[in-house]
Design a protein around this nucleic acid. Structure first.
Lengths: 331, 331
DNA sequence: CTGAAAGCGCTTACAG
DNA sequence: CTGAAAGCGCTTACAG
């Protein structure tokens, strides 16, 4: 039994009686080869069991169709819905997604950026906010397409698709004030983006005549357990809030569970809001009022940007997809 | 301002006064170049800002250091902890992970396998169980390293690293029987793996003298909301169970929330178990008795297999990492 | 320990 | 619509 090399373009060309160039054209742009030729090539591909070598294609064509997505984590990430949509949408257009984990550690971020560049990805998608100006400059100098998502910086590295965390916070403040709440308490994960939302909330709240909200900071990544602890920490506040504004749906869920275990009815005695509008938010008891980020929309805009770049067309630098408050039972 | 091509190996070689081959050796295996030469090369890399082209390297070297991980989803996946560990561990050894989503759809699975093969990945990691024999054969014929994780088939496609779902179910049956429960009810997501666990549970339970457990099937991916519905469905049972064995921690969590809202104390009136030992399981109120799968261990074994393959060493076909029951408050 | 040279499997002007 | 040829940027026997 001889070990067979896997067939190459040349083998397909031979079987179809055409040149390798024609097979390549058929694979990448079928409409430019004659229908009859195309049919022979299709048959030859079938007969040989040819699987194109995208690595060679990437090297020769200068386009890898590889996209790097850098996320802090996936075990418990608020980005997962968006990332799932992203992978789906990008795959539907022939791209593959390289997922890299950065934690909240700038060094790992740099390492993964380097790896992505070395793989000659067509684009790097960044979730969250890259604070370090040096990293931003390095990336800019590199000339790759860089897409920042979720956050929407004033001055994007390259292109940003997302929403203003500040505005999201402001909207939530107006919404809760409109609902008659008067003493909000903020549970804020230690990340730049949550910070921004909290700032937006507080600024709006005060400008609308409210007293500055109290706040508690919790570690990232935020999770269910922190919600429970955050509820207990309320006991230490000089004045009890009437609504707790949580930095994520997980925190909100944990807080509700703990509140109810303590006999505190939500929202009657204490209202709660989350962030992210995870599927669970609509399923929880009570259902959780949250802020929805349209991951599918973000994914589609990202694809549009990528396609425009590939076609050499100009692209907007900031694409605001906004957020939407989903009013449910918890607040 | 002229646009500069990014520097190549040749440019580094020129700057260091050596041949490209030597720079390549320094990059891939520093110990085989003379220390002084290595130092000059390092300086040249620094000076030129060289970023190696891994695409070219993969083509020339026949090793991509790209690993494809195929998962059903990530928005709400019980594999996320394992995948996170996998990405971490593989990245630490210079690999990148291409994440592809397959849903529960065999056609998409085939498409993604084809893409992975076209990218000439070093290995394909499959989570869950590939039932279709034709797909299994195609993959076997291809000669790539294929690693099935979580499930542990009797006859792996290539290598399997995981645990026996059947045994996990059996262990849980013995555990609950030992705790004195007598009327288990199974909530079973419609996936081959959950099925297997349920079968293992039922077989063991009956062989230990119990009556065949009642069961409810729910859609995959399983989520919190299904847990709530599953609790309500209990009302339709002719006899009430004393413990509900849930196919995932999410289902368990939802079921507990709904039970408590209905005034049913857990575990006093109804005990509950989950599966997966997500972080949330330990944080929930009551904490959830679950079955732990050691994702870190799986990831390390996968890396070991990959390294052995790269070195041309033989590898075991089935690596059983087992599972562990984590007894907590809920059962 | 190092270099010259062939080759990995494609894509893409260029020419017809 | 199709082909011949150069080239993408590396790695790796082979030789010294």
């Amino acid at each position: 039994m001889t070990v067979q090399r896997s067939p190459r373009l040349e083998d397909v060309a031979g079987a179809a009686g055409v040149s390798p160039a024609t097979v390549s054209r058929f694979l990448n742009n079928p409409s430019i080869v004659a229908p009859a030729t195309g049919e022979r090539i299709r048959a030859a591909i079938e007969a040989t069991g040819y699987v194109p070598n995208l690595t060679a294609g990437a090297l020769a064509g200068g386009r890898s169709r590889l996209i790097a997505a850098l996320v802090p984590d996936i075990a418990q990430s608020i980005f997962n819905d968006t990332m799932e949509a992203m992978i789906d949408v990008l795959a539907s257009d022939g791209n593959s997604v390289m997922l890299a984990l950065t934690g909240s550690d700038n060094h790992r971020l740099l390492t993964e950026i380097h790896t992505a560049l070395a793989r000659r990805v067509d684009a790097i998608i960044l979730t969250g906010i890259v604070g370090d100006p040096e990293t931003r400059d390095r990336l800019r100098a590199q000339g790759v397409t860089v897409i920042e998502t979720w956050g929407l910086p004033d001055d994007p590295i390259d292109v940003a698709v997302g929403f203003s965390h500040r505005s999201a916070g402001q909207e939530l403040a107006r919404f809760l004030r409109g609902r008659g709440y008067r003493r909000p308490h903020l549970v804020v994960p230690c990340s730049v983006r949550s910070e921004r939302r909290a700032e937006g909330f507080a600024a709006q709240w005060v400008s609308d005549g409210g007293a500055p909200p109290s706040r508690l900071e919790v570690n990232v990544p935020s999770h269910f357990g922190q919600g429970r602890l955050s509820f207990r920490a309320l006991a230490d506040l000089p004045e009890q809030p009437d609504v707790v504004v949580c930095g994520s749906d997980w925190i909100a869920q944990g807080l509700i569970v703990e509140a109810q275990a303590a006999g505190v009815r939500v929202p009657d005695r204490l209202a709660v809001t989350g962030f992210g509008n995870l599927r669970m938010a609509g399923d929880m008891r009570p259902t959780i009022t949250s802020v929805d980020v349209d991951g599918g929309r973000i994914a589609r805009e990202v694809l549009r940007v990528l396609q425009a770049r590939a076609a050499g067309e100009p692209v907007e630098r900031r694409i605001d997809v906004g957020t939407r408050i989903i009013a449910r039972e918890s607040a």
